[in-house]
């Protein structure tokens, strides 16, 4: 994506209030994730290290906007710190999936032939599992923990990216400039990495950045099923699941973490829609004509 193109996409997002909402939510989420430990009102509560017996099950109030849970911990603080773990997981999952998916798609697409087909068949095998199912199996094998969640999700995630890169590389590798590179005697490795990859990278990285919302959602699902992060990590899915036991006494300790997931994922989805629309030349023309 050229700088010009990025600017146009940003322009298209800015004029559309719905897309702008998405951008604001995502920005707020990232900022919250980065600053979380410094802005929580009750840092010890946020890390889950405290047990305040006299403050159990307090309903939402000015002092505790999201109430307190069964351990008397401030739910608001835990939700804010949760943003950091969700950010960590989503960046980790998407980054690791790209790290696996891009090379496989690149090699399979560029080499083609038997080797390429074999690589793509392996990719298809992974796609035979419904999303999240493979991650569940892996997480159950590896055990609970932040790193294991990232590994489990990334391994069920990369095939999508290698498919995307594969398709891109296939359409690029027969362009005249690649032939020219071959004629002057560059090594296949150099052609792949230096000349084909940069042109195939944009769609997959954009897609990956926008997939972070789904990564948050799936990590929360793993936590809910008991194969996610370890308690007392304030991961949003785990917070909902912990609040479940006392939902009839203190509904707020489940409601608000879930709301945080919902709002964040909505932000990513709105932004994804906007970027997809802006990158589709047909739609782009229509939007430009209508709005600008």
């Amino acid at each position: 994506m050229s700088f010009e193109e990025a600017r146009l996409i940003f322009k298209l997002i800015r004029v559309n209030p719905i897309s702008m909402t998405g951008l604001i939510i995502v920005t707020a989420f990232v900022v919250m994730g980065l600053l979380a430990p410094y802005i929580t009102p009750y840092p010890e509560d946020a890390w889950g290290l405290t047990y305040n017996i006299e403050k159990r099950y307090l309903p939402p109030s000015l002092e505790h906007p999201f109430g307190t849970d069964e351990m008397g911990r401030d739910v608001f603080s835990r939700v804010i710190l949760g943003a950091r773990f969700s950010l960590l997981i989503s960046v980790g999952v998407v980054g690791l999936a790209l790290l696996i998916g891009i090379p496989i798609g690149l090699v399979a697409g560029y080499l083609g032939g038997r080797a390429g087909t074999l690589l793509m068949r392996i990719t298809d095998m992974f796609l035979a599992f419904p999303p999240l199912l493979l991650a569940i199996a892996l997480a159950a094998t590896l055990g609970r923990g932040l790193v294991n969640v990232i590994i489990a999700l990334a391994i069920s995630w990369w095939p999508w990216y290698s498919r995307l890169v594969y398709v891109q590389v296939n359409s690029i590798k027969n362009l005249p400039y690649v032939d020219a590179a071959k004629i002057i005697g560059l090594s296949p490795f150099k052609i792949m990495v230096r000349h084909v990859l940069p042109n195939a990278l944009t769609p997959v990285t954009v897609q990956a950045a926008l997939d972070m919302g789904s990564a948050i959602l799936e990590a929360a699902g793993l936590s809910f099923l008991g194969v996610g992060v370890k308690p007392p990590t304030p991961e949003w899915g785990l917070l909902v699941s912990e609040g479940w036991a006392t939902i009839n006494i203190a509904w707020w300790s489940s409601l608000f973490p879930g709301l945080a997931i919902l709002v964040t994922v909505i932000g990513f989805n709105l932004l994804a829609d906007a970027v997809r629309e802006a990158m589709d030349p047909r739609l782009r023309k229509a939007i430009v004509m209508r709005r600008l």
């Binding site: 959602l217 809910f224 939902i247 489940s254 997931i261 919902l262 909505i266 989805n269 709105l270």
Partner: peptide
């Protein structure tokens, strides 16, 4: 529809049950 694509299903289940 955007909410439907973004809501964690376990949370929806808990809240609607509640």
């Amino acid at each position: 529809t955007v909410i439907g694509a973004s809501a964690p299903v376990f949370w929806l289940a808990l809240i609607s049950q509640l």
